[in-house]
């Protein structure tokens, strides 16, 4: 278990450095994090299942400005590890993930508050002419603290918590498991609604309902809708912006 806890802690570091060091390439998303856990623990299918379930909720949690959404990255690593190690279902993993995500969010808030003290230190270093120390606060201390803030909780949870979770999972009654299954289907509705609230305007609302209705009535997959949507968007762009722009502008768009 020590070895597994270490590996999962390292996955935690990879996941947190995604947004700290690689400009948020979305390795931190539950689908990727859970798949990594699945690969590490030798059950890729389960990792994919848990990842897909958690991803549906977290898609809507957009990191904008100072808002700290529940930390689904940490939640999904611990939850998918528990699901694989204790044999729990993806739905049960979901309900483990959410409290952990909320705890992770609180830890994140504390760290982000604590790092405000770096500003005072940086100011002092610059006065003293220690320029390297000032930038090291960012690239070494900042990164290091964020990495530890993932490694330690994940390591502790996996090393000490797996057996406990296994026991709890075995005594869950069926009404609760089917209840959790319904809850896990309601949660994505919240995720999608969050996404909508950041993207939708009165003018753009019909596109959302077009996408919904086509899939509802014709059962076309998300991939299919995405392909149609790209073509529709290009056509509409040509119609709407036709009068306003000359052919020269079309070229400038291509060069974007």
């Amino acid at each position: 278990m020590l070895y597994k806890a270490l590996i999962l802690g390292i996955i935690g570091i990879i996941v947190v450095l995604d947004s700290r060091f690689f400009g948020r390439l979305n390795v931190e998303q539950p689908l990727i994090a859970s798949t990594l856990v699945g690969i590490a623990l030798g059950d890729v299918t389960k990792g994919l299942m848990v990842g897909a379930t958690l991803e549906l909720i977290s898609l809507g949690l957009v990191n904008v400005g100072a808002a700290a959404p529940p930390d689904m990255a940490m939640g999904s690593i611990i939850a998918s590890a528990f699901a694989i190690l204790s044999g729990a279902s993806a739905q049960t993993a979901l309900t483990i993930a959410i409290p952990i995500a909320v705890l992770g969010q609180m830890l994140g808030i504390v760290i982000r508050m604590g790092m405000s003290s770096f500003n005072v230190m940086a100011n002092k270093y610059i006065d003293e002419g220690k320029f390297k120390s000032a930038t090291n606060l960012h690239i070494i201390w900042g990164m290091g603290l964020y990495a530890l803030s993932y490694f330690i909780p994940i390591f502790v949870a996996i090393y000490f918590g797996t057996n406990l979770v296994k026991e709890i999972v075995s005594i869950i009654p069926t009404w609760l498991t089917s209840g959790l299954t319904v809850a896990s289907a309601v949660l994505p509705a919240y995720g999608f609604a969050l996404l909508l609230s950041t993207m939708i305007t009165k003018k753009m609302a019909p596109y959302f309902f077009i996408g919904f209705l086509i899939t509802a009535y014709a059962n076309i997959s998300v991939t299919g809708i995405a392909l149609f949507a790209i073509l529709i968007a290009i056509l509409l762009d040509q119609i709407i912006y036709k009068d306003k722009s000359s052919s020269k502008d079309d070229d400038s768009l291509d060069s974007l």
Partner: peptide, 10 residues
């Protein structure tokens, strides 16, 4: 347009 249609489909 693409984002909203995909969300609708999902």
């Amino acid at each position: 347009v693409v984002g909203l249609m995909v969300i609708g489909s999902m």
